[in-house]
Design a protein around this nucleic acid. Structure first.
Lengths: 83, 83
DNA sequence: TTATCTATTATTAGTCC
DNA sequence: TGGACTAATAATAGATA
């Protein structure tokens, strides 16, 4: 079979993604993207950054090690993940 | 005088920027970039995001409207700015 | 500090595994 | 869920105003 050639990055509308499968993929990619971006920002400019992402009201993903963030994240008793 | 033509985006080392003037410009740009990225992520994936940036131990920039973030930011009694 | 400009780098949508 | 792929989009370093 001929492999399907990628058409590369596509322009998307700035609205909630409708297809659940696409949304989940984009969620994973952009969560990593956000944390990587924050990490670079932190290194380049010597700033402390705390990020909390609330997904579906269940999952919590955190970035940074600020005491307040830890407090908040812990208070949710949810699984923590990071990039 | 001939205008100096831009050489476009340059590759930079992933380390704290040494020149204070460059650091400040990059700080402003990337703070906006971070918040814009977070805003897009939030819209695309329907997630709530809270971000706090601590700069020089003085300035606090926040993104998101989560109650805990407001609480934390307020506790610093510092000027709030955003993009 | 912030906005504009531009060539260049960085990210990623869609897809398959 | 997570990694690889690839062309296209998006962000931005450095200079300037």
């Amino acid at each position: 079979m001929m492999p399907i050639k990628s058409e590369g990055r596509q322009k998307i509308q700035m609205a909630r993604m409708e297809k659940a499968s696409n949304l989940l993929v984009t969620f994973s990619k952009r969560r990593c993207g956000l944390f990587i971006y924050a990490s670079e920002f932190s290194i380049l400019c010597g700033v402390e950054i705390a990020i909390i992402v609330f997904f579906s009201g269940k999952k919590v993903f955190s970035f940074g090690h600020h005491q307040y963030v830890e407090m908040i994240v812990d208070s949710f008793f949810t699984k923590k993940q990071s990039c």
